[in-house]
Design a protein around this nucleic acid. Structure first.
Length: 780
DNA sequence: AGAGCGTCGCTTTTT
DNA sequence: GCGACGCTCT
């Protein structure tokens, strides 16, 4: 048993238990042995987790012996911060907190050799997976028309999530499609091995392989992670379950926290059995139920409960609260998606004035990312700041992916997917036919493509001209490979990317679009520089790993004062005083396929439950009778979920013009709302503003003079343009750029977000910089 | 080999 | 309503 240690400057262990309810206290103070915490929405789960870890530390557990597995990096970061407040930052920093994927990647990086990789292994995202699958299908002569590669990808991922190796998949294959899929699976696995690459599933599987095949590694990590906690346990899959069981196997100090009602990742392999089996696998497990909700009003909780109770499959629990009754729910019945967006925006503005919310107190949730567009337009028109939680989109841009592919190749030359991606980008005269032939050769010889490219004998199968082009390309990569250990990553990346000719290609095209792309490449390079400044141990490999494992919910802007726009999946774990859920129509939410499949329907319902329970004070629900989907006007009916909420919970609310917004009448009634101004902004302006709202990469800060503008100007339509307008940068002005150094402005062009400055730097280089992005510091 | 045009499929959610 | 991909032509 543990004994408390002197508290020093911080809160003693016993005090940590104060201010917790009885159940929470029990969960926190149960340090040893298996513990299952069933934590209803808003029941103080995060509080319990952080206090429990702080308690452990106070009881003398060394931070490095604590492992906390979370769903997002943000959740881990937040947890660390909160623990830091309780026990001191220095101590909190020592715990192992992160996602399964990022922590396992870190361990595997160290142990790579033992499972047949090198520590330079690349992490393949879903796009890389797809290219690999396509290449394999071409190699096997399987038609991509008959067998869609995305379908194959999800089947392979399904196999992996069930720990089914290709041998077994092949054995169990009955139909031709099954057999072909199994064969593609086999070749896919070989290809990734050959490429020294792991996909997301492999990060988990390889951790298991390491622990199962290397008893000393198992012993080592079991001894290291003496206390293990798993958050969002209902959304873990079988592989994660196995990994956790292995790690906790010796000491069995395993605490899992979950809520089956909030399980929303079944499609990704999350398995509710993980909760049910816990008590079976750990018969001595203590079970603590947290059922008091501290977050929401009675009204909101009642609505959530009346919805979720329609699910047949669920564990019994009763969530209750001491909070106020609260406001009734507002229902916005709208004619179409434009009007829905408009009304949502106006309602938000209205409630902000009425109840004193600020922008960051508000979130608009929806089922699909595509719905954000109309909402953005409306918010922009009302000049309300917002931010979209989907930080990865910047990294999905072609030029950014190309840049990263070049860097990945530098770190891991066997990374065939990256190699193929950029070998002819910019065009070098290395065509598809030649590459196909060379790939065939590589497969036949069982060696990585990059080796084939460097073998004069093998290269003789392609034209002389191609041979020369390939040799030039390989030279560039090799030249910079030699410098990897000698130059700081940002400098190396900068010089190497310049040498590839990629940025120049876009710059010379000199169109609005190509300059944008050029700029994005510069932003990646500046980003590496920034990260390097923050962490001097940064290497290109670790940088690339961070990028690969970024998640949407990791968007650092989440704390800024803006209205949050996000999917309900992305909203998991968050809470807001005012929550709007838009697009409550059959076929959209729930999605069409849930109408026939009861399991899907229950998952959609859980998702709605998650959405509702994000709200603390007030809930607004909205649907539209017509909506544009795929550029086509589609008619819809209100969501079945709306009918599951008691009619008396809805408010009858006049809007400011005195007109009816929505009533407590049967929701199928048509409620017409007039007088909404719906002038569309110009196409160009829309696209413009959108690109800035969307492509702000995470951890990116636009440097700007202090206090020169309101704090939310950055991304919200018109106000954005004031961030760095041409006005304050004039010819003759001396400026400093983080990468290029000091220079003098020689010219300015464009206005608003398009404002550019030509700067002559001290090294004689002249650069044309977008002021909205380039982090220029004015110096005198 | 590369440019240009047309078709298709896409939007469910993401580590 | 857009972007990715494939086909055709040069």
């Amino acid at each position: 048993m543990l004994r408390p240690i002197p508290a020093g400057d911080h809160i003693p262990a016993s005090d940590l238990l104060e201010g917790l309810n009885e159940k929470q206290r029990e969960a926190v103070a149960t340090t040893d042995g298996p513990l299952l915490i069933i934590a209803g929405a808003g029941s103080g789960k995060t509080r319990v987790l952080t206090y429990r870890i702080a308690y452990l530390l106070r009881m003398g557990v060394h931070p490095s012996h604590v492992l906390a597995l979370t769903f997002t990096n943000r959740a881990a970061q937040e947890m660390k911060e909160r623990i830091g407040h309780l026990v001191g930052d220095g101590i909190a920093r020592g715990i192992w907190a992160g996602t399964f994927h990022s922590l396992f990647a870190r361990i595997l990086r160290k142990e790579a050799e033992r499972i047949g990789y090198t520590n330079a292994f690349t992490i393949y995202d879903t796009d890389d997976q797809l290219s690999a699958i396509k290449a394999v299908m071409t190699q096997l002569g399987v038609s991509q028309q008959v067998l869609p590669p995305t379908g194959v990808r999800s089947r392979i991922s399904g196999y992996k999530n069930n720990m089914t190796p290709w041998q077994e998949a092949a054995r169990n294959a009955d139909t031709l499609v099954d057999k072909q899929t199994a064969q593609i699976y086999e070749e896919y696995e070989k290809r990734l091995r050959q490429s020294n690459a792991m996909d997301f599933d492999d990060l988990l599987l390889n951790m298991i392989r390491l622990l199962e095949h290397h008893p000393d590694a198992l012993a080592e990590y079991q001894a290291r992670f003496k206390y293990i906690m798993v958050d969002e346990y209902q959304d873990t899959n079988r592989v994660q379950y196995r990994a956790v069981n292995l790690l906790a196997g010796a000491l069995r100090n395993l605490c899992v926290v979950g809520d089956d009602a909030q399980s929303i990742y079944r499609w990704r392999g999350a398995d509710i059995r993980n909760i049910l089996d816990f008590e079976r696998d750990y018969t001595d497990a203590k079970v603590v139920r947290l059922e008091q909700n501290y977050r929401s009003t009675k009204m909101i909780l009642a609505a959530a409960d009346s919805v979720i109770k329609n699910n047949v499959k669920q564990l019994k629990k009763t969530l209750w609260t001491d909070n106020d009754e609260g406001e009734k729910i507002t229902l916005l019945a709208c004619r179409d998606d434009r009007e829905e967006a408009e009304l949502v925006a106006r309602t938000i503005k209205d409630r902000m004035q009425l109840h004193g919310y600020t922008f960051k107190d508000v979130a608009v949730l929806y089922r699909t990312n595509a719905q954000s567009q109309a909402l953005e337009d409306a918010l922009r028109r009302l000049n309300m700041p917002y931010h979209i939680v989907s930080g990865v989109s910047f990294y999905k841009r072609k030029e950014v992916k190309d840049t990263l592919a070049y860097l990945r190749l530098l770190v891991n030359q066997n990374d065939t997917e990256s190699l193929l991606r950029i070998i002819n980008e910019p065009a070098r005269g290395i065509g598809a036919t030649s590459l196909e032939r060379l790939q065939e050769r590589a497969v036949a010889e069982g060696r990585p493509l990059i080796e084939v490219l460097q073998s004069p004998l093998a290269m003789s199968i392609v034209q002389k001209r191609t041979q020369v082009a390939v040799a030039d390309f390989v030279d560039i990569v090799n030249r910079y490979r030699e410098m990897v250990d000698d130059l700081p990553p940002a400098t190396l990346a900068q010089q190497y990317i310049e040498a590839t000719g990629l940025p120049q290609m876009y710059k010379l095209q000199d169109t609005e679009d190509s300059l944008d792309r050029w700029n994005n490449i510069e932003r990646v390079l500046s980003h590496i520089y920034e990260q390097q400044e923050l962490d001097e141990t940064l290497t290109l490999a670790t940088y690339l790993e961070q990028i690969a494992l970024l998640s949407d919910a990791d968007d650092p802007q989440i704390g800024s004062n803006r209205v949050g726009l996000m999917t309900m999946h992305a909203a998991k774990g968050l809470e807001f005083p005012l929550v709007v859920i838009a697009g409550l129509e059959q076929g959209l939410f729930p999605l069409a396929k849930a109408e026939t499949d009861i399991n899907e329907q229950e998952e959609e319902r859980r998702l709605f439950y998650v959405g509702i329970t994000r709200a603390r004070k007030e809930l607004v629900l909205a649907y539209a009778e017509r909506r544009y989907r795929f550029g086509e006007l589609v008619f819809g009916r209100p969501s079945m979920f709306l009918a599951e909420i008691d009619k008396s919970a809805f408010a009858e609310m006049p809007d400011r013009s005195g007109k009816q917004i929505a009533g407590s009448r049967p929701i199928t009634d048509k409620v017409a709302i007039r007088g909404i101004d719906s002038k569309r902004p110009s196409k160009a302006a829309e696209k413009e503003a959108l690109s800035h709202a969307r492509f702000q990469p995470p951890t990116w800060k636009v440097a700007k003079p202090r206090g020169s503008h309101n704090e939310y100007a950055q991304e919200s339509g018109d106000s954005y343009s004031q961030v760095e307008d041409g006005g304050r940068v004039l010819p003759g002005q001396r400026v400093k750029h983080p990468m290029f150094g000091v220079g003098t402005v020689t010219g300015v062009s464009g206005v608003g977000t398009q404002a550019k400055a030509t700067v002559l730097f001290q090294n004689g280089e002249k650069k044309n910089l977008m002021l909205a992005y380039a982090k220029l510091e004015l110096i005198s």
